[in-house]
Amino acid sequence: MVRTVVLNIDDKEVRAKEGISILDAARKSSADIPTLCHENGLDPYGACRICSVEIEKKGRTKIVAACCYPVEEGLKVRTKSPKIDKIRKTIIELAAITAGEGLSGEMRLLASKYSADLSRFRSRVPTESTKCILCGLCIRRCIEANWDSIIGFAGRGVNRRVVLFPDRSGICSICNYCYDVCPTGRISSIGPSPHFPNIDNVTAGRE
């Protein structure tokens, strides 16, 4: 039997099944937590950190990623505060370094919601805009749909990027999922007649 825990999200009492994330519990209670690297049905990944929320436990506050942190009995969660908003704004501004300023998709909505200044950091580090924030959704979605992936990560640190493995193109089932999940609109629609998704060989990251 799955236990139920009671926690407090933005001053509202919320009941949730033990083991689910703060994010899932919050969505049930209609608190709005933004996400960029999370997708229902995929394992939490914790890379974008835009879902950061403040929790209070034994009198101590801490910032955690709501998509990964499991609910706990008596936990107090704050999904909105000046501190959280500032962190989210800064994350969007940091993400814009590789994503660029001409955004579409979820990133664009969030940028205006948090009044992010997309050129604030970009102007300091001249980087080619790749439209990608390395959330890994396309890769993880592809693995889930096809048991394997034609795209994957390569490189470390600022050289991390999404690459296409052309020799695995046979795996592509033209499911369109990678296009659907991309939060920046980096992967373009494959058009009316189905063909291979439009991902350049190196899609993100490198300066």
Binding site: R156, G157, V158, N159, R160
Partner: peptide, 25 residues
């Protein structure tokens, strides 16, 4: 640390990138 960051999360990867540039400036 910029060399050693794995690059998975945005704050560390991009934060270190900007910090390194500003510090060298």
């Amino acid at each position: 640390l910029l060399e050693e960051s794995c690059g998975k999360c945005i704050p560390c990867r991009e934060g270190l990138r900007v910090l390194s540039k500003i510090l060298s400036d």
